[in-house]
């Protein structure tokens, strides 16, 4: 069962790495992004193929088990990803606003202005 899981995970990592390389070639992913994702998938593959490897790093960081290290790291990574997504979405929202504003001002029909008031 475990061997089947390792095999399936290997296929998933292979697909992901091919996708990362393709996106790098297309210019969608920058050099640092390419390096990050390649290292990420390589580390994930090592952790799955050799579960004992995480134990070493966990012990070095003062965390009891290797599985706990993977779990904590995953939670931190997910929180960070959520944070980045929030910021990205807000940026897109502001771009939408700019477009809506441009369009609104372009199609505005001015009403006849009343006389100038002084206070």
């Amino acid at each position: 069962m475990l061997i089947l899981f390792k095999f399936l995970f290997f296929i998933i990592v292979l697909t992901a790495v091919m996708s990362v390389i393709r996106r790098g070639r297309e210019g969608v992913l920058g050099k640092s992004g390419l390096l990050f994702w390649l290292l990420f998938w390589f580390a994930a593959l090592i952790a799955v193929l050799y579960p004992g490897s995480t134990q070493f790093l966990a012990a070095y960081l003062g965390i009891g088990r290797g599985a706990d290290l993977v779990f904590y790291s995953a939670i931190i990574a997910l929180f960070y990803l959520m944070f980045r997504l929030h910021i990205k979405i807000e940026g897109i929202q502001r771009d939408v606003t700019k477009i809506v504003r441009q369009e609104a001002l372009k199609t505005t029909i001015p009403a006849p202005s009343s006389s100038k008031k002084t206070v």
Partner: peptide, 13 residues
Amino acid sequence: AGAIVIRHSLNRG
């Protein structure tokens, strides 16, 4: 009522 109206096509806040 006499206002100049600028219309956002989407609600932006």
